[in-house]
Design a protein around this nucleic acid. Structure first.
Length: 695
DNA sequence: TAGTTCTGTCATCCT
DNA sequence: TAAGGATGACAGAAC
């Protein structure tokens, strides 16, 4: 197990904590919101001396851990490191507090549960240290101390229902710290020792073996990352519906075992394609030992038997997660587990085993090695960043949809609802992890791989369909399929939006956490404000598509997407309304933009025309001036001419009685005004008057 | 508090 | 006929 850069919220009360959990070939990233003080109370003692990074940039030194309280409280055990129990006699046995929580009817605070996680990759390097943890957990379980309501504390007898699970665990049955790693071949040589607990807790990558592995694979990682980034960039640049073919083809490549890298998206796609398998059948308790090297992970015919259903279910706790981390062993009510052979146990079969049984319709040969390889290619920083971004959304999303107690109860009340998801603490479908190197067989793991496309899930708003019974009709899915889908949708959540836990007003309001509710409510409301009304509506109705997809998707893809999912009339109506409003909103924006452009253009036209008008006015004025000057000159010339003219008797000719008249041939005649043409007469009179006025 | 602006939405028409 | 673009009108939020 690895704690990755935990940080506290500004108020210092809510801990946003990311845990990388090494689980066989899978590493689970858990995103938790924990109470700071509570966490400090029960934080693993191995964190003593650690600096916790607060969100405000300050650090908080873990100098002391309070003793474990006598009893009560919610989910404390979830935070308790198994070793703490061993060292602290006052510590309650494993699972006790979980039982208490349920027995007392205290609702799980969604943010404190590991209600959503991602299966990231294999972290082989931490196999050693985590064995110690799990061994301790096994010891607690084996002690059978917790007379739990459900599987956790009942998982004890003999150290676990999966007989080999307990026995194969190096630390099981009270042998925790001293037990060698021998029983499980894949357990690290240095593993299984509690002395390495620190290493386990503080970072897998710090173990010598892990470093060695990292060095060995560093070059390969770089190349792999580069290749992966290129691939993902190409896909990411396209809308989901455009990338659909790409993802499908990638899925095929995975199936063919030709894809060398396995990204989160890929993993989700695969999970979505076989959610029922992964969620229902995979038992955390049945996880095969972790390969010690990349080559082991890639080549060894290790069988991976992981029960995701438990981890994903509402009952999954940090405590379990912590226990799960170790040597691929997860003790979770083996009795219950084994008592339900019909429970779908997915075996992530090796190429040499029955892959068809494991993933009918989907050849996931090398599935986990791909994950391993991919995750090995991710640096811790990458993971950390990823965790921050993704888990925040996931965690918040879970608040909104996945873990509404009302919904859970409703689901459980659904006729025929046989969830292997352990939605109920009393469910018998608790998962068991046997530290069994043998290969489990996937039972009931059926279904096609193409039911849920990648983008269908990735951008899902709700990732949840409210009518499970109807969902079973989807693509001839069995109940198992539905459950798997449902469960996986809980996990997939929404990665499209910055899902802040609004958790929808409705869902957020449905939680009751005295003393914390206000804080959570404020937190949810603050973040939910960023969601549009349609987004909130979509979340409320658990529309499995993102609003952005609904709006932007081409009509053909849109219709095909709708046809691939069973949606209620209400959901369909909402989806179409969202699409219509979204389209219209864009249209309105464009319309206003155009209108604004038209107005601006018209304003520009007005300005230019006004400028032109001014120019013309100035020209007109200049022309008038020129004309006046010409007239003035003509008048002077006229007078000068008449002043020089004489009649036959030598007398000057009066301009009042005569006028000059130009002929067509250019000659000038002196014509008596009485004989002048009327038009010329008027013009001469006008000219005379003007000249007189000017004079 | 009133006015203005911005934005989303609806109704309607048209393509 | 469905889908959607365009646009006027209205309402609510924000300033």
């Amino acid at each position: 197990m690895k704690y990755l850069k935990p940080w506290w919220s500004d108020g210092g009360s809510l801990l946003h904590f990311t845990i990388l959990l090494s689980l066989a070939e899978l590493r689970l990233d858990l995103d938790l919101d924990l109470d700071l003080d509570l966490y400090l109370l029960f934080a693993p003692r191995t964190l003593l001396g650690d600096e916790l990074l607060l969100r405000n940039g300050q650090t908080r030194h873990i100098s002391a851990l309070s003793p474990f309280p006598a009893s009560g409280g919610w989910g404390r055990a979830e935070l308790l490191h198994p070793k703490c129990w061993e060292r602290d006699p006052a510590a309650p046995p494993e699972g006790r507090l979980l039982r208490e929580v349920r027995a007392l009817g205290v609702p799980f605070i969604p943010s404190t549960r590991v209600d959503a996680w991602l299966v990231h990759s294999v972290a082989a390097g931490d196999a050693d240290g985590t064995h110690a943890l799990l061994g301790a957990a096994a010891a607690s379980s084996a002690g059978g101390v917790g007379a739990g309501v459900d599987g956790v504390s009942q998982a004890a007898p003999g150290g676990g229902g999966g007989p080999r699970a307990v026995q194969s665990s190096p630390l099981a049955a009270g042998e925790e710290e001293k037990a060698p790693a021998e029983p499980t071949a894949q357990v690290s040589d240095a593993g299984g020792h509690a002395s390495e607990e620190n290493e386990v807790l503080k970072g897998v990558g710090h173990s010598p073996q892990h470093e060695e592995n990292e060095q060995r694979s560093s070059t390969q990682k770089e190349k792999s990352l580069q290749q992966k980034n290129e691939d993902e960039t190409k896909v990411a640049d396209k809308p989901a519906w455009e990338a659909e073919k790409t993802t499908e083809s990638r899925s095929e490549r995975y199936q063919n075992g030709t894809e060398a890298f396995f990204s989160l998206e890929d993993l989700f796609q695969l999970l979505s394609s076989q959610p029922e398998n992964l969620l229902e059948g995979v038992s955390l308790g049945d996880i095969a030992p972790l390969p010690r090297s990349i080559n082991d992970g890639m080549n060894s015919p290790t069988h991976y038997n992981v029960n995701f259903s438990q981890a994903i279910s509402h009952d999954v706790s940090l405590h379990e997660a912590m226990l799960l981390c170790s040597d691929n062993t997860f003790r979770r009510d083996p009795v219950a587990r084994t008592s339900q052979p019909q429970e779908q146990i997915l075996q992530l079969c090796s190429p040499t085993t029955n892959t068809e049984q494991t993933f009918p319709g989907t050849n996931l040969t090398g599935f986990l090695p791909f994950i391993d390889n991919q995750m090995r290619n991710l640096s811790q920083d990458h993971l950390y960043d990823l965790d921050i971004n993704i888990f925040d959304e996931i965690n918040l999303m879970s608040l909104a949809t996945g873990f509404d107690p009302m919904e859970v109860s409703w689901l459980l009340e659904e006729p025929g609802y046989d969830s292997g998801l352990s939605l109920d603490s009393s469910s018998n479908s608790t998962s068991v992890i046997k530290s069994n190197s043998s290969h489990s067989v996937c039972e009931g793991a059926t279904g096609s791989s193409s039911d849920l496309s990648h983008h269908d899930l990735e951008g899902a708003v709700g990732g949840y369909c409210p009518e499970p019974s109807k969902l079973c009709h989807m693509n001839d899915r069995s109940d198992c399929h539905f459950h798997g889908d449902l469960a996986f949708q809980y996990v997939s959540h929404n990665h499209t939006y910055h899902l802040q836990p609004s958790a929808l007003e409705s869902t957020s309001e449905s939680f009751s956490w005295p003393g914390k509710s206000q804080k959570i409510s404020r937190y949810l409301n603050d973040t939910d404000r960023n969601l549009s009304r349609d987004e909130r509506r979509a979340k409320a109705l658990h529309i499995p598509f993102s609003v952005d997809e609904i709006i932007r998707m081409p009509v053909d893809s849109f219709n095909s997407m709708l046809s691939r999912h069973y949606l209620t009339d209400l959901q369909l109506s909402l989806i179409r309304d969202i699409r219509r409003r979204g389209k219209n909103k864009v249209a309105a924006q464009n319309c206003r933009k155009r209108k604004l452009d038209v107005i601006l253009n018209l304003e520009d036209d007005v300005c230019s025309l006004q400028a032109k008008k001014e120019t013309l006015k100035r020209e007109q004025s200049q022309f008038h001036k020129a004309i006046n000057i010409m007239k003035q000159k003509l008048h002077h010339l006229y007078r000068d001419v008449f002043s020089r003219l004489r009649d036959d008797q030598g007398r000057p000719i009066s301009p009042n009685q005569y006028a000059l008249q130009c002929t067509h041939d250019g000659s000038v005649l002196i014509v008596p005004k009485e004989l002048m043409i009327p038009g010329q007469k008027k013009e001469n009179q006008k000219g005379k008057r003007k000249n007189e006025r000017k004079n």
